[in-house]
Amino acid sequence: MVLPYKDSPEEGICAICQDLLKEAVSTDCGHLFCRACLAQHVEKASGDLCCPLCRKPCSEGVLGEGYLCHSHQKRVCRFCEEHKLLLCVECLESPEHQPHPEPTIKEAISHYRERLSRRSRKLKKDLAELQRLQAQQEEKPQALRLCALPWQGPDQLEAASAERAGTLSLWEAIAQLSNLVADLERTAKELDATTLKNASDVLSRSAPQNLDGLFPLLPPTGPAPR
């Protein structure tokens, strides 16, 4: 049975990491551990689960429903990257998953965290370049940037309109990219077995082919072509 607890000194110390409990869960025998610490213990366990402290048996669902296979109600141990599914030992026997090796949950978390961090670093560079262009736009006199002056001819009016549209698109691109970088960093920080699918979705949203609309705004000296 999983019991929710708040992160506070009153909740005690995790017996595994010897630090304050974070997202505390209780084993069947009543001992408390950080969810992440107990998840690592469960992944390494072979055979029947037991409490890391007193060695008494634990139920398969000690970490909560997110760590149980919905098909077989057994603890998950692998992650299928092709189908974005958590798998238990019975799932691995299915012909659907036998043709290709599935990483352990620990391997998948490490792999996706590195990919999220790498993508975040790349997009931060692109964001800095867009912000540099925005600063250049803001240095121009406001009348030239956003206003059509009464004495301007048709060509000047058209140029002013294009300038205004480009400036607004730049602001929108910066906002979109800033939100995406924040999503990448938050997902990497919070990554565990239950959020592996979310990591895959965020990486897909931040894939270069899905961001092509943002980068025509950058000059040739900006980020390398995608």
Rank of each mutant, 00 (worst) to 15 (best):
R78T: 04
P95Y: 03
S71Y: 10
E93T: 08
Q98H: 07
L86N: 02
A135F: 12
R121S: 04
W151G: 02
H83V: 00
E82Y: 09
V76F: 09
K106Q: 10
G66Y: 10
C77M: 05
E158A: 13
P150S: 08
R118N: 10
Q73E: 08
R132I: 05
A135Y: 06
G61H: 09
E65S: 12
G153E: 05
P141Y: 14
H83D: 11
L85F: 11
P99G: 07
Q137W: 12
S71V: 04
P154Q: 09
H111D: 14
Q137S: 09
I109R: 03
K84Y: 09
R78I: 00
H97F: 15
P103S: 01
D126S: 02
D155L: 14
E102G: 11
S120R: 08
L146Y: 04
E107L: 01
K140W: 13
Q98M: 14
K106G: 07
L149V: 06
L157R: 15
E129D: 08
P103L: 01
R75I: 00
E114R: 14
D126N: 02
R115V: 01
P101N: 08
C147L: 14
S110G: 08
P99L: 09
R113A: 12
L63T: 04
H83F: 09
P99Q: 03
E102Y: 03
L87A: 02
C88V: 01
L133W: 13
A108S: 14
L85Y: 08
L86P: 07
Q73G: 00
P101K: 14
G153M: 07
Q73W: 10
L63Q: 02
Q136G: 12
C77I: 04
E114G: 07
A128Y: 03
Q136K: 14
E60R: 08
C77V: 01
R145W: 13
L63A: 05
H70R: 03
L133Q: 14
K122V: 13
H72S: 01
L130T: 11
L146F: 12
R78N: 02
A128D: 13
L144T: 07
D126W: 11
L127I: 12
G153L: 05
R75G: 02
L123D: 10
G66R: 01
L63I: 05
H100S: 12
E158C: 07
L157D: 08
Q134D: 06
I109W: 01
E129F: 12
G64Y: 05
L157A: 10
P99T: 14
C88G: 13
K125S: 15
C147F: 15
I109V: 11
L123V: 02
E139V: 00
R78P: 00
R115H: 11
I105E: 02
S71P: 00
Q131S: 04
H72A: 00
A143T: 12
P154D: 10
L116A: 10
K106E: 10
L157V: 15
V76K: 04
L149G: 01
P154W: 14
C91G: 08
R113I: 06
Q73V: 00
Q136F: 13
A143V: 14
Q137E: 10
L92D: 04
A148H: 06
A148G: 06
P101R: 09
K124D: 13
C69M: 04
